[in-house]
Amino acid sequence: MIELLAHLGKNTRSSFSKLGRGTFFLLQCLAGIISVLPRPRLLLNQMYSVGVLSFLIISISGLFVGMVLGLQGFYILSDFGAETTLGVMVATSLVRELGPVVSALLFAGRAGSALTAEIGLMKATEQLSGMEMMAVDPIKRIISPRFLAGFLSMPLLATLFSAIGIIGGQIVGSGLLGVDEGAYWAQMQAKLDFYDDIINGVIKSVVFGFVTSWIALFEGHDAVPTSEGISRATTRTVVNSAFSILGLDFILTALMFGDD
């Protein structure tokens, strides 16, 4: 019994100390961003590996999610004779929820896990401590550019996801199922608001990008420097990112769309 209590206490303490280290890491990382600005080359390289390489999976998933929404929405809406509102349904669900959330989950799986593994391996092979020996701050040189790249890429990817999904819904809706193309776009334009819907979706994806990059980089930096430690850290990145994204999505949705 005493052992159990001691175990519980130890776990609680270690998770709080991890949160503390994480916050400290985030502050260091944010401070390091200033020194990235005069060296855009570092940022560009990371934008390539974090953003451009995630583009394919994001666009293909967006296309299929939009097509499925078009198909399912058509079957439900045709029961009420309201097929013409298909565009509203597809666009609202993509722009408000699915675009930011699904692309953030894919981003955590595709780019977040790669970041954790990369940083963890750098730590295990003592590249990070090597840099410190040469008086190069690894936070400024390695971590901050990756953080900034993730933070900037996420809203771009989410916007692309939504846009491609809406086109996918249109392909299925008016191409295969015969919803009037004009009605698809016109009803969408009448119902969706730029600030309330689209900008709020972009804000969501900015928050998700921030959190996902933070978790991925911190888990890598905090990993036990063995092959097993890195594999665990990578798993934790994906799991924790998914939890944070979905939990934050609920809070953000309640804040943004609560009053209508």
């Binding site: 916007t159 969408m188 334009q189």
Partner: peptide
């Protein structure tokens, strides 16, 4: 560089698309 530039341009185009074609 070109690919990153294309990526950023595509993202901004998508935002314009959402602003003009999807919303009012």
């Amino acid at each position: 560089d070109t690919l990153v530039g294309l990526f950023v341009a595509a993202g901004i185009t998508a935002l314009f698309f959402l602003a003009l074609q999807v919303s009012n």
